[in-house]
Design a protein around this nucleic acid. Structure first.
Lengths: 222, 222, 222, 222
DNA sequence: AATGAATGAGGATTCATTCAT
DNA sequence: TATGAATGAATCCTCATTCAT
């Protein structure tokens, strides 16, 4: 019986909760969501399986919370990077900025890809609300920020753009991670079209999207 | 012991295979992929479970084949609709054309959303190859067709555009089908941003994408 | 539809039956009984699965018949070898003779090892009777032959000796074919005792058995 | 939901493990290994199926452990019986001693008969190692003991004798448990030869074996 | 708060055998 | 007689979750 020091104070509890999330993240980097068991996470966190359930109500809530945390950090990064800029930004420099923000967060992109089919099921209202509220708030803020740097964006379009980016992440993440057999098939020379690189596909499409919005804005003015 | 005529000739076998796919499609319209068992499909098709395995090697191969068939029909529709046109098309009319092509195929969109995480696993090389080959061929053909109607597309860009559309379908499909709890959360007034309508989100983004490509082409010329 | 020439005459039927047995034997040399499917045998024999059931009533009857045939040939060999001898034989030379008789028939020994747990189940009376009758007849004949060469054997002891040999074959066959993991364990130096070589274990024990019988005979006389 | 006290301490766990083995043994007395399902054992043990898998990794490991336990008890009995004796033993009295040791353990003999074809497959290295190690140790000890009571045995021959006995058990167990149809066939008067009584066949052969070894020893000396 | 023993639902798949053709 | 499409029984094991301690 290991009986780790008990987390009595609220602060200690937050720390332990974060430790669990950190373990989940590390484990998730090594294996697929389905392969990752609660046993595994508990063992790696040096806790008993039951203890996990004192902090999260289900496996999905663990990863939803993780997604929330990672997403929040991503928004932090993005906001910081944006606020560094003084004036209007070009499409290219904004795309580059997004590129940087994705760069060190492969796990976040993978989490988003399973968010709707996996993580948002078997979750309590409170957890879902917390997640969506964070997402809403940050999307609104960062969306507004984007609007201030990209003059062609109409109020509200910043947030909508972020939703589109979100959809692109999910879609291209799926495309870029083929199963074993499919990878074999795609290794054929004539299958080049389907060998998707997540970063470049994402950024390429984002750029086109921004140009489309810019073009549309021109039209509108005319 | 259900009495069913035996599929002896090759033609009959093709028919039976299609009947199985049709049953799978109908069942899939009513329930989620995970809830759908081979037992269920067999019963609905009036066949023994083992018989399914004479035509498909796994549950995944059933749905991969179904996806292949539906996708093929979608390309048929699209190609036909395109070939009806005489000359260059406007962005708006092309978007409308895509809208029509998606309209009657909600199941196809749902299948695409689980293709990479579900259907392409536990599948033999032959099945994966068949699927990807069809996708490649049709993407190439239809992509070329698109290029002929949208003058701003450079050779090869038509197929790449289709891949982007494909990613958008996956992404927006995920966004537009929230789980029970999440739907509850999203029913709040301030969550409007996340209440995604698949069709409109898809077409809106497609339009922006096309405008972006058009804009890019202008640039290139200049 | 392959429709091989039909076996109409009785002679043709016997031939086809034998061809099936031969295929089964060849296949059995390559893989374990459980891994060997009727499909496999049918395909290798160039016949339809259903055709196999025209000649044998079950998978077990195929292999029981095969065992019968192989056993019969083994008795043939043994009898021939014995009849070559003019006079009384020494224990050692008889053991050598048995050694020769086993040498080219590894499949027979493997069949005997699964005879009682596998082949004699799911078999019709006729097949079981045929097998046991052959075994009885040949055991009696060869047993008597043995008695004539080994003077220390009392009438009836020859057949009983063959039964003992039979038990030894089953036992040592089991001991000599460990599963994968067990083979690993037995590869340890201190596990030498369990690394059984079928031939030598069998012959060694047979020799002791014969000596025991000889000794017993001496006693009896005294 | 059956209410059962939890096995918390190591001692309790050992007890529960043994309770499972005991249930398996009882069930095995009533039916064949193949007919016995994990469901069945769990129900009889008053446990959930999953609980069985907390103590054993597979059905095979349950029965391998059972075999290990029964074997161990058999060696205990044998050793005790041997150690009761003061001096050298006659062949006949040793055979009688073996007879006693087998008497109350029909299940052990049946387990040995399926050990190599069944129980040693689908088993982890640790389980196989544990089993073989026990077998090795006890075989060595009891083998040595035998050597001290039977002067004609050369060092090492005791263990080898036990292996031979082991093979005889497997072989005669197979011969003595005919399937339904075969039993019918063997009930014919002329099939007496094949109606094997396990005990007597085993002991008869054992006696001959011992006499053979004694004879051989005499030879050696001369 | 922490533990970890106990729970039990849940489903794809194989293959010997049958029987319509 | 030959074919091969159709049948369907049969079962192990995982792992998220619970709850007695």
């Amino acid at each position: 019986m290991r009986v780790r020091s008990r987390a009595v104070s609220g602060e200690q509890k937050v720390k332990r909760r974060n430790a669990i999330l950190q373990t989940a993240l590390t484990d998730f980097a090594d294996m697929a969501y389905d392969e990752l068991t609660m046993d595994h996470i508990a063992a790696d966190a040096g806790l008993a399986k039951g203890t996990l359930y004192l902090y999260f109500r289900s496996k999905e809530e663990v990863f939803l919370a993780l997604c929330e945390r990672e997403l929040s950090q991503w928004f932090d990064d993005l906001d910081t990077a944006l606020q560094t800029r003084r004036a209007e930004m070009s499409v290219n420099s904004l795309v580059a900025l997004f590129a940087d923000s994705f760069a060190g967060r492969p796990q976040l992109l993978r989490l988003l890809a399973i968010l709707h089919t996996g993580l948002e099921h078997n979750v309590h209202y409170a957890a879902a609300l917390s997640f969506k509220t964070l997402l809403k708030t940050r999307t609104a803020t960062t969306g507004a920020l984007l609007e201030s740097y990209l003059r062609f964006l109409v109020p509200g379009q910043g947030a909508v753009l972020l939703i589109k980016i979100y959809a692109l992440i999910i879609g291209f993440e799926h495309l870029s991670e083929p199963s074993g057999v499919v990878r074999e098939v795609l290794s054929q020379p004539d299958m080049e079209l389907f060998r998707v690189n997540l970063q470049s596909a994402l950024l390429d499409t984002l750029k086109i999207l921004l140009m489309g919005l810019a073009y549309e804005a021109k039209y509108r003015q005319a």
